[in-house]
Design a protein around this nucleic acid. Structure first.
Lengths: 253, 253
DNA sequence: CCATCTTTGTGCACGCGTTCACAAAGACAT
DNA sequence: ATGTCTTTGTGAACGCGTGCACAAAGATGG
């Protein structure tokens, strides 16, 4: 969903399509699980099923990395884990700062997924002076005033913004000015960043709204063509708010 | 971003492309901000800038909804807010349950974005008996045993999974069996659901890994094409694109 | 060494999404 | 009315991603 971009289709990132990059972590997770079960090799079919994708797509994705499979056998799990990790840059340590230690920020700080692979929470930063020094997830919260110094001292290049929407752009600007070039934004705002800085956003509200759209559509279809629904006509409990005209009008023309 | 989509089978979402649906919440947010500032009308150019997208794309997106603009003037803010809200199904109330009240689940329960627009946290559910009855965000946590009853009593069709990965599929199966047809999954696992059920996933770990990939690429280029400052080097080559939303290429003043 | 079987790697076609560019539509001034 | 100016709505081209289908590559067995 959100990557810094330009309008220059010139040289492709690294020959690796963005869509493929987005799936590599998925493959890596499935492979890691196999590795823990000491499975030596896996076929594209099996791995694809575990990752929830099409096997042809998986093979094509891997082909961008190189020919790491053996025909008639499959892929060596350990080797593939290493190759993907290396490609994603997970063989090195990435210090990360989290700015905005509210409910969400604290949850992120406690999230095991961070430390698990390459990422290390270098610092927690909050604008509330009352938070300063208070430990969250074993890490003392530091004040926003020291943001630049923290970034610099720790060589941080990835920042996570979990502040209220109103403060996000300001925090973003300071992070970028201090040298951060990748930002994961949880605040419900569109961030403006200079070229060369990547921003990805995670927006709970948007996700829910997209689900609501489809939910509404399903409800409309159910009402319209009752009895021919895909999965047992879903349920009827979804509240029969069926009042008034203005029904989603899903009629197939 | 952080969304994962699950295959969208047959019926095209009412003629509205999925990519457009994903942007509607973004437009809605920008429009709401304009509405609060009592701005009467807005041009596609202005609104596009506020939402961080291309103006032509915005106009095409709106064209799927209908001709709500006035040539030479722009769009009526209030009217557009209403139309988009209606299209997204936000004019009705969506009861939502959150399963897994750990750090993340609690953060979600406290997240204002839920209640703000159409969504209502109907119940919080956790497997830990010790949590039962304990209020989180003013709502008492209920035990997993009552999941089916809670879904049924409240007519819930949207569920949020914030459990550990190991419990996610099981919880998902129970939600679906109980009648939930839309799921927002925060657990780092691929969920299997029957046809007709929508799943969107939000995966912090994956987002970070994608950022790490680009960060590594930038670092490599910087080292190779050794030039000036850090940002300056990253600036010389950029070009990449995101699958979904994106970031405005506009420079901050 | 040859035959057969399995699985990879990929050429190709198709469809979706993005973007450009412009005609049509309306506002506004004269 | 008429002309000019602004902005929408969209036809068309293009590029990316997806999935099919198959040939090539290697394993395996006789």
């Amino acid at each position: 969903m959100a990557t810094g971009r330009t309008h220059r289709p010139a040289t492709r990132s690294r020959g690796i399509p963005e869509a493929t990059v987005a799936r590599l972590p998925l493959y890596l997770r499935a492979l890691t699980a196999l590795s823990e079960r000491s499975v030596p090799t896996v076929s594209s079919e099996e791995l694809a099923a575990a990752a929830g994708v099409n096997s042809a797509k998986l093979r094509k994705d891997f082909s961008y990395l190189g020919s790491y499979g053996t025909r008639g056998v499959g892929y060596d799990v350990e080797y593939l884990v290493y190759q993907i990790s290396r490609e994603l840059g997970l063989t090195q340590d990435w210090p990360v700062v989290i700015v905005g230690i509210g409910n969400l920020g604290a949850a992120l700080a406690n999230y095991g997924g961070f430390a698990s692979r390459g990422f290390r929470v270098a610092a927690l930063i909050d604008a509330d002076p009352a938070m300063a020094g208070k430990p969250v997830a074993g890490i003392p919260v530091q004040h926003t005033d020291d943001l630049e110094k923290i970034i610099d001292d720790n060589g941080v290049s990835i920042g996570v913004i979990a502040t209220p929407a109103g403060a996000a752009q300001q925090v973003c600007d300071r992070l970028v000015a201090a040298g951060v070039t990748s930002i994961l934004n949880f605040a419900p705002t569109v961030l403006s960043v200079p070229e060369g800085v990547d921003v990805r956003k995670v927006d709970l509200s948007i996700e829910l709204q997209i689900l609501a759209f489809h939910e509404q559509r399903k409800a409309g279809e159910e009402a319209a063509a009752d009895g021919a629904g895909p999965v047992a006509a879903a349920r009827k409990k979804s509240a029969d708010k069926g009042p008034d005209g203005d029904v989603p009008a899903v009629m197939p023309a």
